[in-house]
Nucleic acid binder design. Structure first.
Lengths: 229, 229
DNA sequence: TTTATTTAGTGTATAACGTACGTTAAGTCA
DNA sequence: TGACTTAACGTACGTTATACACTAAATAAA
């Protein structure tokens, strides 16, 4: 029962926007809250930061608890600190987003959530607390990030087609892209390696499979890039 | 005497990187600390957030206290929360930066600072706490921001020359820019108005003075832009 | 009054990049 | 074998980025 008033001299928490990709749609993992306030409502997974815990370790702990994953992409986005943002007292919260490969996630109940479930990001219209605002900031940040560096591959399987990458970008940016221009621009970065394999079992011409060339990828991450699409 | 241990169940603070422009150099306003720890050292101005104070109001309060300014450009950058970042206990701090016109600032002593002084941003090499890291993040954010939207004019007087703007960009980005290309690109945005006046009292051909067209400026701010220089 | 000094202000040619767009190839399924 | 589905590919055009050097207008000094 962490929501005693005594906690609220000046408590801080983290909230975690966990993005995934499924059926060419950008998804976010929400939890069904098992505590007041907003008990039984779908909300962002979050928790108070422990006094002996580095801030950045808090979202990692939450990720591990509800997805079983470690070492995923994690980025701090913004800190929300209106006096009245939490109905039970003063809680400043730090918003993070993560990118996970949805196939690796076995969503599971935990101390902070009775259920967890993937939702279409662009279908959501409201969330408890200021979680919708947090979500919007995280979407915007993710959209800016994919234009500036080759992140987002965390959302894909190890081997993927160029169409998978384009669908990823279309899902994140929430708009259609031109196929030839996308492929031209993306391949010219040189961060993909043709693994000389092809899709199987598809009812059409099979696509080439690619994987990342990690070294180039890190190089790009370090110096950034400009990928306007 | 705010640094009693009892504060450190989970205290949060803000630290403020206040940028200014002087003699074509990007400056940051530091305070001489009047309290332990690091008493008498130059550090970022910051303070604990009050329990009845919206997070964003804390850096505004600090700005007002040490510069007398209100309504200046203010942007949240990053939150720093390593367990051991503050030697006296657990303090999570939120880093903000502001842009101020240095001529309007009358730096003054206050409860949090015995002295305040402008320093060359790119000459600093270390600061107490993790303040140097906070400063670096704020510089990077400012540099990204001037490439994406026409901010930074807060650092200039009301009427200014195109060379002033270029010097501003050179100071922020810390590199030389091509004069003709800069002017061409900047003017083509259409956010400047020729006020039909000229510099006076300069020992060379006097430059045209400009001011901002606020409406266009807001339009750009809203939709963002791409100003690679 | 002339000359030196300083900064303002301007244009063009070339390369790089973004954009728009239609057809053939290689599989599966009925 | 014909219908269907998605993969793969190239070009012409317009826009933007880049590199670069001289004349103009003021003051200061001789």
């Amino acid at each position: 029962m962490p929501f005693r008033n005594s906690f609220f001299k000046s408590a801080f928490s983290v909230d975690n926007v966990i993005f995934g990709l499924q059926e060419s749609k950008l998804k976010v993992l929400l939890i069904k809250r098992s505590e007041v306030p907003f008990i039984n409502e779908w909300a962002l997974p979050g928790d108070l930061v422990r006094t002996d815990e580095n801030l950045r370790d808090a979202p990692k702990r939450i990720l591990r608890e509800i997805t079983g994953l470690q070492d995923v992409y994690l980025e701090q986005v913004h800190t929300f600190g209106k006096v009245d943002r939490h109905p039970l007292g003063r809680v400043v919260t730090v918003g993070y987003y993560s990118l996970v490969n949805i196939d690796n996630v076995k969503p599971r109940a935990s101390s902070i959530a009775s259920k967890v479930k993937w939702f279409n990001v662009f279908d959501l219209e409201e969330l408890p607390f200021d979680h919708f605002e947090i979500l919007k900031k995280c979407i915007k940040r993710l959209q800016n990030s994919v234009r500036e560096m080759p992140i987002g591959f965390e959302l894909l399987p190890e081997k993927f087609t160029l169409s998978d990458v384009q669908e990823l970008y279309e899902a994140v940016l929430h708009k259609q892209l031109d196929k030839r221009n996308f492929r031209k621009k993306f391949l010219s970065m040189g961060i993909l390696v043709d693994v000389k394999e092809y899709q199987t079992g598809v009812a059409h011409r099979p696509a080439k499979l690619y994987k990342f060339e990690t070294s180039k990828y890190e190089e790009f991450k370090a110096k950034g890039f400009n990928f306007e699409v």
